[in-house]
Amino acid sequence: MTERQPINLGEDMTDDRGTEIVMYWIRSERDSRNPNPIFGPMLEQYAAAFASVNVELRWISVDDLVIGSTGGKPSVHVFGERVDPHKAFFHTMLMSSPHNRIDAWRHLTTYAALEAAGFFVTVPFMHSVMNDDKMLTNLQVFRGAGRAVPTVRINTRGWGTNGVRVDEDVLPAAGISFPAVVKPVDWDGGHSVFLAESQEKLDALLSIAGSADLTMVVQPYLGSDTVDCRVFCVDGEPFVMNIRRPVDGNIAGNVAQGGAWGLVPVPDELAAAARKVAAVFALPYLSVDFLVAGDEWWLSEAELDAGSPDVPMAAIRFDSYRKRFADFVRTGADQRTWQFIGGAQ
C-alpha cells in the first residue's frame, strides 16, 4: 500500500504579496486513493484555473487533517506538517451523494473544527447542511426571493416494506398531481430524477429509495419545455447564466445527464432574485438555479460550489476564493457568515 501524496497542480503560486497560497480541497475519502478517471477533464480544468490565479491546489481527505490545541493556541497539521492560517485555506463543501454519505458527520465536524481553529473555509459547515438538503434552502433562503417549487419531503425507511406511507391527501394538499417529479433531497448532478405517472409508480420508487433510507422529495412536473437556468454570482453579484436543457426525454437538464447548455447574460428578473439569495449566503461564490417554463419561473436551489463549465469560469470561481481569503488575512477578521441563515428571532 502506498502513501497518498498531495497533488501539486500549479507553479509559481504566490498571493498579491508574493507569498505562496495553498487551497486544501477536502474531498470525500471514498475516492481519494484512486481518483476516478471520470474526473480527469475536471482535474485538468481545475489545474489550468488554479495556475491562472496563483493558488496551489492540494487534494486531501478529512483523514489527512490533525487539529489540536496543546499550547494554548489551536493549530492544524496536514500530512504531519503544520499549516499557516495566513498561507492556506480549506475548500469545505460537503458531498452528500450516496457513496459519501457515510462520511457526512466526520466532514461536518471537521469543517467546524477548522472554523473553530481560526482557519478560513470557503463554505461554513452549516452552509453545507443548507446546500445539501434542498428543502432546507427553500424554507430558509428562498422566502422573499421568489416562488419555490412546491415540495413534499419524505423519509423512506420502511416505505411499503414496513407499512410506511403518506396519506393520500398530502400531495394534493401541496398542489402536486401526477405525473410528479421524485428525486433524492441531497444528491447532485441531476442523478436519479424520476417522473412518477401514478401513485403506484411513486410507491415503487419510494420503496426502492427506502432500501437506502434515502430522503426523497416529490414536486410537480412543470412540463417537457422546462429549462434549468443557473445564475452564477461572485461576491453576491450575478454575472452570467447557464441555460441547461434536458435532451433525449430526460427529466433533468444537468450536464452530467447529457443536457445541452449555453452561457447567456442574466435576465434582470432572475438577476434580482439571485441577488437576494446570494446576499443571504454572503459567500464569495455560488449559483442560484431557476426552473423556467414559458413565462413562469420558480426558484429551484442554491448551489454553493457549482461546477464550472469552462476554464475561464473556473478561474473566476477560484479567484473569488483567493480574494476572500486575502481579505481574511489582511483584516484579521473573519469574512465568513457565522449566522445560521434566515436569522429569525
Binding site: M1, D63, V66
Partner: peptide
C-alpha cells in the same frame, strides 16, 4: 490540551499523520 485525530486507515498513515512529540 487536546489533539483531534481521524482514524481511518491510521494503521497505514499514523507516522505521517500524528506524532505525540509534535504536540
Amino acid at each position: 490540551p487536546t489533539v483531534r485525530v481521524c482514524t481511518r486507515e491510521i494503521e497505514v498513515h499514523e507516522k505521517n499523520r500524528f506524532q505525540l512529540s509534535q504536540w
